Simulated assay, not measured.
Amino acid sequence: MKYSRKQITKAGEKLLTSKSDIEIEEALNLINNWRANHLHPLVVLKNNLLRLLTKNNIQPNLVSQRLKRLTSIEYKLDLNPTMGLGGMQDIGGYRAVLKDVRDLKKLRDALSDQRTNHKLERIVDYVKNPKDTGYRSIHFVYKYSSVRDVFDGLKIELQIRTKLQHNWATAVETAGIITRTSLKSNQGPDEWLDFFKVVSSLFAIKEKLPVMEEHKDLTMEELMVKCYNYCQELNILKKLKAIRVSTNKIESDNFPGDYYLLNINITEMFVNIQIFNKNQFEDATKQYLNLEKSINENENAVVLVSATSIKTLKKAYPSYFLDTSEFIQAIEKMNSNCIEWKYI
Score class of each variant (00 low, 15 high):
Lys6Tyr: 11
Lys163Gln: 11
Asn29His: 13
Lys206Phe: 04
Glu297His: 11
Thr162Leu: 02
Ala36Trp: 02
Arg95Gln: 06
Arg95Leu: 08
Leu164Gln: 07
Phe140Cys: 04
Ser200Met: 08
Lys278His: 12
Trp168Ser: 05
Asp132Arg: 14
Trp192Glu: 00
His38Lys: 11
Leu52Phe: 08
Glu282Phe: 10
Ser18Glu: 09
Gln65Ala: 14
Leu223Lys: 03
Gly12Pro: 03
His166Cys: 05
Asp194Lys: 15
Lys2Pro: 02
Ala96Val: 13
Leu62His: 12
Arg244Phe: 04
Leu15Phe: 05
Ile275Met: 10
Val303Gly: 03
Tyr230Pro: 09
Arg244Leu: 08
Asp100Thr: 05
Lys206Arg: 12
Ile73Asn: 01
Ser252Tyr: 09
Ser64Lys: 08
Arg148Gln: 13
Lys105Thr: 03
Ala110Pro: 08
Met212Asp: 04
Thr116Gly: 07
Val225Tyr: 08
Ala110Gly: 06
Met83Glu: 00
Tyr317Asp: 02
Lys286Phe: 12
Asn337Pro: 00
Lys55Thr: 12
Leu313Glu: 02
Val225Ile: 15
Lys238Ser: 14
Gly86Met: 06
Ala307Trp: 03
Lys14Tyr: 12
Ser137Arg: 03
Lys197Asp: 05
Glu23Met: 04
Gln114Ala: 14
Lys99Ala: 08
Gly86Phe: 03
Pro130Asp: 05
